[in-house]
């Protein structure tokens, strides 16, 4: 239910973007496409329980590795 809702919100925003995107140059289209695909893949991965890491947890793990703190996977 809430994913449907989220989808609706972002589709609407995408429609708003669409018009301006047509006038954009190739470089911009590429960056846009990469970011959008990244977002979608990430969302799917998350939905499929393939990953539960966010950028924040990744950073926590990296800093933890350097400082020698190991986090139990259930904590985050």
């Amino acid at each position: 239910m809430n994913y449907l809702f989220v989808l609706v919100v972002f589709t609407l925003l995408f429609l708003m973007d669409f018009k301006e995107l047509q006038q954009a140059n190739l470089n911009e289209k590429i960056v846009y496409g990469i970011l959008l695909l990244a977002a979608l893949t990430y969302a799917m991965f998350f939905e499929a329980r393939f990953t539960t890491n966010s950028i924040v947890t990744v950073i926590a793990r990296i800093v933890g590795l350097i400082r020698g703190i190991s986090l139990p996977p259930q904590f985050y």
Binding site: F14, L21, A24, Y32, L35, L36, L40, T57
Partner: peptide, 16 residues
């Protein structure tokens, strides 16, 4: 144009 996809990433990351 970057606002929307970054926004989606932010929302997902914040959620997690």
């Amino acid at each position: 144009h970057l606002v929307l996809p970054i926004g989606a990433l932010v929302a997902l990351n914040a959620h997690l």
